[in-house]
Design a protein around this nucleic acid. Structure first.
Lengths: 358, 358
DNA sequence: GACGTAGGTCCTATGGAGGCC
DNA sequence: TGGCCTCCATAGGACCTACGT
């Protein structure tokens, strides 16, 4: 027999005041001269009854639900990008907000439905997230609800939170070169002269640009560009396998993501070579598998948690300047690159703030 | 300039009826004699204005929010158990519900706070989930909100959804034995005579019981029980490594989870042995890494999605009989066990319904 | 037979009322 | 007669529903 919740009216009765007074006092409204004594009575009554305001009713009356909607294709389930949710969740909690989660599973029209489901419940804002950076369409039924794109961009929305691919790429390449691996360098994942295709997203463009700009600055010319899409374990394996078969001996491999690196490890292993010892390997993302590898992978981490948190902050802060918001990619320096002691300490990192090593 | 949403009143005015009529018609209430013609007018007006009911207001008046709260320590972020959320999400969506997600990150008092945050928003029910089956305390402030434990149990709550560890174990062991691997069997992860400790949860007990009951039934006596906790890659590696050093040659390894299996693969590899070819390996969970391994791992999958969906169903169905709800663990038959063609087709699976092979 | 009125859900916002010196 | 302090009535917010016309 669901005993009902305590309402303001109950508190008011016990304290001998009106519900108005209870509301004013419980919300600590300034500028209203209610006697200190009344305030004490009301608070005591509220405590005694265990009163908690009904946020649904409050939302109805204030038009602010303190709820944020989180739409994604598969974020909650994608092990790489679930960090996005986690970051958003924590930040939302710190602001007394809660998250509605809706996943579209890539179904047609599911985004539209999700938006309906969320706006029908008066969310204060919507985060539209993707597991891989891409351009998405935001359905018109969001109406006037603020939207922030997370790990994605959209023509329909001003704000988007992205990883700083360019600087991240510069930093990890600098790390590689500073450690002395400047000969027989191979770039695995995408070649520069390949025509633009569906995989060639903004994020990829910037990642590539960061890599090549830095190589050129240092006067390093790779001995091979291995193109393969998608960036899967098997494709990484195949590419390096073929390279070795052709009797080309890489001394450093720049992998465009961790899965390619995983594949590269295998191909190297079959040839009796070992990452870290015979071949330096750097990569991107800091996928979970990065630390399962032997040796563990040095990689520029996708800063998902921080990105998720930032998206929430943007939504709650109406004052920010709209546009692209770039979050630094921290380097995870591990065994796949041998960094000589003396070199390690004098590695230059002009783009300093992006170098969150841990 | 947030143009306001259209309300029932707007529709009523356009259709020339009262809001009552709009409510009755939009909700398809039976037994109310409104003219068919009025219904048509109302629907047309609603369409024209793009009317959508405000679910916050509806929740306030009906006391049903069509929202389910999902509390967990780290489910959204745990790559193994995020399937729980996904399943819940899909099932909720199918019933027109939406999920609030709250994570506790294991902080003290966070569960209590999460419950407050959810009940303040009038959720219709709460799912309390864990990444590893365990017994949890449910704070009293849930009040009369229905709660279902997911991948967990609690003294405070009747309903819990768990994987059917016992039958799952029986089935995977049968598979192994039916494939002819009955000699030199090793059990990796926990030994029977080890005293109960924090790791010895109900789930583990049942998993173990399923394994040993089946071995005994078939008259198979393992040549070794390797005990190690936690069930990590490194511990799995170490245990098998030591075994091989001691010159014991296993022909079949029953791993208590996939991470142990991963470690076992490595130790075997170093000794020039290969899973599937020289040693049959079976395991539990169907972690993501299971398909990254070479050969891919044969394992009894933790049916997380189905469990999540089931929890939602329980919450929405007030009529079910309370108690433990066991969800079958499907076998994922892959390369780590060689199943002779003729054997494969005549493997017996008395516990039939649990054998969702895919 | 076909519909509307009024009151309920719980909280907030506003103006104004009563008491006292 | 005013001014100050303390408080509350009322009117929303958008919806549902029992009853009445």
């Amino acid at each position: 027999m669901a005993q009902k919740r305590v309402t303001m009216a109950d508190v008011a009765k016990l304290a001998g005041v009106s519900t108005t007074s209870v509301s004013l006092i419980m919300n600590n409204r300034q500028g209203t001269r209610l006697s200190a004594e009344a305030a004490i009575r009301v608070r005591a009554a509220a405590d005694e009854l265990g009163y908690r305001p009904n946020l649904t009713a409050r939302a109805l009356s204030t038009q602010k639900s303190h709820v944020i909607g989180f739409i994604s294709e598969q974020v909650a389930t994608d092990r790489l990008a679930s960090g996005l949710i986690r970051g958003a969740l924590q930040e939302a909690k710190r602001h007394g907000h809660v998250l509605f989660i809706a996943e579209t599973e890539g179904e047609e029209g599911a985004v539209h439905d999700a938006v309906d489901a969320l706006t029908d419940r008066q969310v204060d804002g919507i985060i539209y997230a993707a597991t891989r950076p891409q351009s998405l369409h935001v359905p018109a039924n969001v109406g006037s609800t603020p939207v922030v794109m997370l790990n994605a961009v959209s023509d329909d929305v001003a704000d988007s939170v992205l990883a700083d691919e360019y600087k991240g790429a510069r930093n990890i390449i600098r790390l590689l070169l500073d450690a002395g691996h400047t000969e027989n360098v191979v770039v695995l994942g995408r070649s520069l002269d390949h025509p633009a295709d569906e995989w060639f997203t903004v994020a990829v463009q910037r990642r590539l640009a960061g890599i090549w700009d830095t190589l050129r600055e240092r006067g390093v010319t790779p001995i091979a560009q291995l193109h393969c899409q998608p960036w899967s374990v098997i494709n990484g394996y195949q590419a390096i396998h073929d390279l070795l078969q052709a009797n080309v001996q890489p001394r450093a491999i720049i992998c465009l993501n961790d899965r390619l690196a995983f594949g590269a490890y295998r191909a190297l292993g079959e040839a009796g070579l070992k990452a870290g010892r015979d071949v330096a390997v750097v990569s991107f993302d800091d996928d979970d598998i990065a630390v399962y590898l032997d040796p563990m992978l040095t990689t520029a981490a996708a800063p998902f948690e921080e990105m998720g948190a930032h998206a929430v902050r943007l939504l709650l802060d109406g004052e920010h300047t709209p546009g692209e918001h770039l979050v630094p990619m921290p380097l995870r320096i591990r065994g796949s690159v041998k960094v000589p002691e003396k070199v390690g300490s004098r590695i230059e990192h002009p783009d300093d703030e992006t170098n969150w090593v841990r």
